[in-house]
Design a protein around this nucleic acid. Structure first.
Lengths: 137, 137
DNA sequence: CTGTATTAGTTCCAAGCTGTACCAGTATCG
DNA sequence: CGATACTGGTACAGCTTGGAACTAATACAG
């Protein structure tokens, strides 16, 4: 018998909601809104607003807002890209990198609380499966 | 711990975003906003607004709006609960059930497109793992 | 009964998000 | 070079969202 995709999806969806909800307060303590955190965490991999928008499936206008906030909070810094003067290269500040790491740790801790219920073997399994499902194509 | 919880979380999060984004248009064709769909899909299991709010981690005020829209679209109907006159028992209309099923099918199709990359064995595996992680505690 | 506390659902309005229009810099073509 | 098309980022107006206050029904104590 095949596993029901919709059911599986709902299950997964709910899991992520619950974990994120549990972390919202800790993120706030670090001075981060949920959406802002996602942007902050993406800066290292995608240092330009346009790239972040694509990576996170967010409208450009929204990224503008989150970046503005993150700059105001001193978590990131804008630099002008010498190669393309329209671009704002985003750079993590020391505080930004620290906040991001702490936020990721908090998230991992909560997720780990869930992961702890399954065996290490299952965790490796899970990672492999998700990676496979997410791979481009 | 060999598997990084934060990484795993991000992976999973991204997968769900991508799948949901891919379905948004199809849901719109059915006359459903994304959030409305979640409410519609929950009505059968949680027939009262307050229950839906708890189940979906949504504020009551938001549920009010989505329910209003779903009623206006003819997907659900309000009935007064004889046992408790404050309560609005929500009932799926025929159109509502049909729209929900089609939406779920679209979602499952997209998720299946991803699931198709892994073996049936892995799917069962995945379901078991997620269920375990989500179980109350 | 009356008074107090609790719960279901709504309304109000402030805060948040995003589509659209826009400006500035780049690329290409003649 | 000048015209046209495109891309990066921002501004703003309009819609969506959700916290707080509110109303109506229930529960229960005295």
């Amino acid at each position: 018998m095949t596993v029901d995709g919709a059911q599986l999806w709902t299950l997964n969806q709910r899991l992520l909601s619950v974990v994120m909800d549990a972390c919202t307060e800790e993120l706030a303590d670090l001075g981060l809104e949920t959406k802002e955190f996602f942007v902050l965490a993406e800066v290292a991999a995608s240092p330009y607003p346009a790239e972040i928008a694509v990576a996170l499936l967010l409208p450009k206008a929204s990224v503008t807002v989150y970046v503005r906030n993150l700059v105001a909070k001193g978590f990131i810094r804008r630099e002008i890209d010498d190669a393309d003067l329209r671009r704002h290269r985003l750079v993590l500040t020391t505080e930004g990198a620290e906040a991001r790491d702490r936020a990721l740790a908090a998230l991992a801790a909560e997720y780990d609380r869930r992961l702890a219920r399954i065996t290490p073997q299952d965790r490796t399994e899970l990672q492999r499966i998700l990676q496979q499902m997410l791979s481009p194509g």
